[in-house]
Amino acid sequence: MTALLRATGLRKSYATGRAGLFRPSARFNAVDGVTLHIKPGETLGVVGESGCGKSTLSRLVLGLAQADAGEILFDGAPLPRADTDDWRRMRIRMQLVHQNAAGALDPRLPVRAQVEEALRIHKRAPERAARALSDVGLPPAMAARYPHEMSGGQLQRVVIARALALDPDLLVLDEPVSALDVSIQAQIVNLIRDLQAARGLAYLFVSHDVAVVRHVADRIAVMYLGRVVEEGPTAAFRTGALHPYTRALLDAVPVPDPGCRGGAVPRIGDPPNPAAPPPGCRFHPRCPFAVHRCRAEPPVLREFAARHHAACHRIEEIA
């Protein structure tokens, strides 16, 4: 099956601090050579700590930011340049849901008007707004409310309704549940899954929470300091993660079983400054298995099982 979205060798750097008179401003690669693809109707989960480039990646994929290098093909064609008419038309097919639902809505407008606006921009019937709001489980009476009159979970439903009203093929969800209470998180995650089952759209689901991603994703990509360190089907992450970083992430997920408290979870400390990534394997300063080679030579993604890739020199030895 051909991919709905295929990104190859994406790279995006940002300036840190101001340029001096004789000194160009320092730059760091927020996303440093990422390759991924998403098939129609599939969910790709992207996991990583804050600062690993997840949000930059989601902006690049949507064409909201321009990549410095690399190529993005959506449905076989390159993304149009940002803010052109073609690019705006493309918004019907790819939409964004991000973490801060309260901020993502205009405080001055009732929520129904905000869903209608998305439809009007693309010359669709605004009457579909009511349908979109009921699809995400909001009672009709709420349509007239203003954002400040609604709870975080309700607001995230509105944001999802606004994105889905246009019937996109791809929805990029950037930390869609991180700002919500755990009980509400479960509701929204289930809503997201149900919507996919009903409509067959593809998700790029970005989160720092491995447990959530494992719950929704068909495949998972683990990012570390701008690079993908492991990628494979979700089932593979249940049975045997390959990369030491992925294992640390998985070990850190709390187990809801009182009999199983306080296992020996390796503590790997905070990530290094993404503006000055370590040479060689970027994970080596925090890796319990690091050897001399890891400090010198950056590992490449290698396939270890069917469609299961990881970037580590020592997987054969430590597995």
Binding site: L62, L64, D83, R88, R89, M90, R91, I92, Q95, L96, H98, N100, G103, A104, L105, D106, P107, R108, E117, A118, I121, H122, V159, R162, L166
Partner: peptide, 26 residues
């Protein structure tokens, strides 16, 4: 700089619409 301005842009709202119906009233 508010997130809803980014929402408007990523929905496909043109610059005039973003300024007149979202930025200016706020």
């Amino acid at each position: 700089a508010k997130p809803y301005m980014r929402t408007a842009r990523s929905t496909g709202a043109g610059p005039a619409r973003r300024v007149i119906s979202h930025a200016l009233p706020n």
